[in-house]
Design a protein around this nucleic acid. Sequence first.
DNA 1: GAGTAATGTTACAGATTTGTTAAATATTTA
DNA 2: TAAATATTTAACAAATCTGTAACATTACTC
Lengths: 227, 227
Amino acid sequence: MSAHIFVVEDEKPILTLLTYNLEKEGYKVSSSSNGEEALSLIKEKKPDLVLLDWMLPDLSGIKICQYLKQDEKVKNIPIIMLTAKGEEEDKVKGLNTGAEDYMTKPFSFPELLARIKSLLKRVKPNIVSEEATYLDLKIDRESMKVFRKEKEISLGPKEYKLLDFLIKQPKRVYSREQLLEQVWGDDINVESRTVDVHITRLRQSINIEGAKPLIRTVRSAGYSLEN
Amino acid sequence: MSAHIFVVEDEKPILTLLTYNLEKEGYKVSSSSNGEEALSLIKEKKPDLVLLDWMLPDLSGIKICQYLKQDEKVKNIPIIMLTAKGEEEDKVKGLNTGAEDYMTKPFSFPELLARIKSLLKRVKPNIVSEEATYLDLKIDRESMKVFRKEKEISLGPKEYKLLDFLIKQPKRVYSREQLLEQVWGDDINVESRTVDVHITRLRQSINIEGAKPLIRTVRSAGYSLEN
DNA sequence: GAGTAATGTTACAGATTTGTTAAATATTTA
DNA sequence: TAAATATTTAACAAATCTGTAACATTACTC
């Protein structure tokens, strides 16, 4: 059951190479070398992931990215931005393009592949079921209740959202920035230390006498739901 | 009491796979690979849910869908349309097929299962029985009377509709927006805080000396019928 | 058409949650 | 071991959210 990747790339050799390699990996590939066209095709086809060249003749990658991220129906499709080394590199880093990741050309295909896989993995669990469990922790999204060892736990809204997010991929380590983006929301302006505080509060809430702690701190990296 | 799922699918391997997996999940499965036949079988058997392939040799999925949705007796049976990725996908989305959901082949079975469960859950209460109860609260839809502990309670029209809706899925938390949409109606232009006021009024009405309160507030999320 | 009931809005008090800060701990590095 | 770096936690002020009374408007009843 292969994922569908959409490539937006102006330079023919690169496009050919990408398509060839991605298909060899078993992905379904669609492409366009024209910004406007790409935009409408992506909205129409809803691929699982977009590779987006920064430099396009008609519409810059950043614009496409912005348009896509504004559209409710496709905003969840992850985007990897492809930039030329040098001039534009820093801009891309600096600007908040909304892209999930970026790579600088020339890049190694294995690395790109690794990032693609990682992104696809992250997006998959969007198939949200009504109940999620991790060990003795359970969250029922229908009633919005949380249980530890069958005992109900009361959480504030932020802590609930935080747990709801973490439990989608237990053991995965998220940076503070990722958590802010996913749990707090995109535009919001909050110190990254604030995450610490909420993690602490969540820890205290889900903590139970004689049970293992469920949130792991990964120094200088972030947090994960794990014991 | 397991749900009964009817699969309309032309491609043998897919049909076999679906049947096998669904039965493993405990569902009762019937099927047909022929449009005309499916149509009459569905009307006859009245399954709880239909999986409907878009491409059939004799009668297109969309036609079947339309026929079913026109028939008073089966129009409430939810339909999940199965479409091939690519060509027909957009048509299905765009056209108002009347299907409750659709999935694009190839799909992941767990995802399909999640959607099936969600639909069954959502639709089950639509098979509205004349009476619904939650604990000591009873609503008789025929006479439009509400009782708490055998004692009749008088509710205004809005409060009645609100309770009628909430009691379909007790414990499920609904946002103010959902309630507005479901109880007030789609287009209507009402402040979301208005819901609060009606919740308060409903609370007061169904409240009885020495009985538990029956409506739960979930801060920053909404309300549910529960104590 | 007067009287009654139902509905939607607003304002405000009270409750809860949140973000920030700073000090205390913990961990890593030199 | 000391210094540097990172995390935990308590405390507090600010922000957000909810419940409800009061009132204006609309809809209904007789």
